[in-house]
Design a protein around this nucleic acid. Structure first.
Length: 208
DNA sequence: CACCGGATTGGCT
DNA sequence: GCCAATCCGGTGT
């Protein structure tokens, strides 16, 4: 039964850093407009409010937008970034715990033709799903799917269990795009499957 | 109600 | 490497 849908209990852990790493290698599926796509999760990031300045829920800030983050784990948190991109997070932890895992990149398994059609780019297939704003398009995910459960058979988005990736095969680094978060930006909460071709942008190289 | 800026991307110089 | 796209959430007047 390694391909069972991950149950809500899985997402209720308070250890969001563990979960972010554990979600690597799991299979995310979507069924949107009757079209099935599936892919392997190859890159994640953990966001851990209230202390985490990189999180929308920093300081336990509650707004209409951040409200789903405070619900019990196992639902989606999808928001619009730069007015263009729908970024998908998994809400984790018990109710009132504002932790999420951002899925940053996936490796296509099923429905790659559907993904090509949705993305409509004239680039290599490697560009179909190798970024947080890219794979959601490929898999038909947008804010209509915000704050919905992902642990039910009937869910349009769900994640199937797979064996945990060994720590030696995981590349740990700083998170992307949150320089404004000061010291929090330095936290090693980005996780990638090592040597996987479908992960997103490489680490920034700094010259001094 | 006006303004600022963002957990990004793709195309062009 | 640079930068526009595009829009809405959050904040302050």
């Amino acid at each position: 039964m390694s391909e069972a849908i991950l149950p809500q209990d899985y997402y209720l852990s308070s250890d969001v850093v563990y979960l972010a790493q554990d979600l690597l290698g799991k299979i995310i599926m979507s069924k949107v407009d009757g079209l099935l796509t599936s892919a392997r999760i190859v890159e994640t990031e953990a966001y851990m409010a209230p202390e985490d300045r990189g999180s929308h829920a920093y300081g336990d800030k509650r707004t209409k937008r951040t409200e789903p983050i405070f619900r019990a784990g196992g639902i989606s948190y999808i928001y619009l970034c730069y007015g263009i991109h729908n970024l998908f997070n998994v809400v984790t932890g018990p109710k009132e715990t504002a932790h999420v895992v951002l899925i940053r990149a996936v490796e296509p398994i099923e429905g790659i033709e559907v993904m090509r059609k949705r993305r409509d780019i004239k680039q290599s297939d490697l560009n179909l799903t190798n970024g947080p704003g890219k794979w959601t398009i490929a898999m038909g995910i947008d804010r209509n799917h915000n704050a919905t459960p992902i642990y039910q058979k009937t869910s349009s988005i769900k994640i199937l269990n797979q064996p945990r990736i060994n720590a030696e095969r995981v590349q740990v680094s700083e998170r992307v795009g949150i320089a404004y978060a000061g010291e929090c930006a330095l936290r090693p909460w980005r996780f990638r499957i090592k040597h996987n071709s479908w992960t997103s942008k490489p680490d920034q190289v700094s010259y001094s």
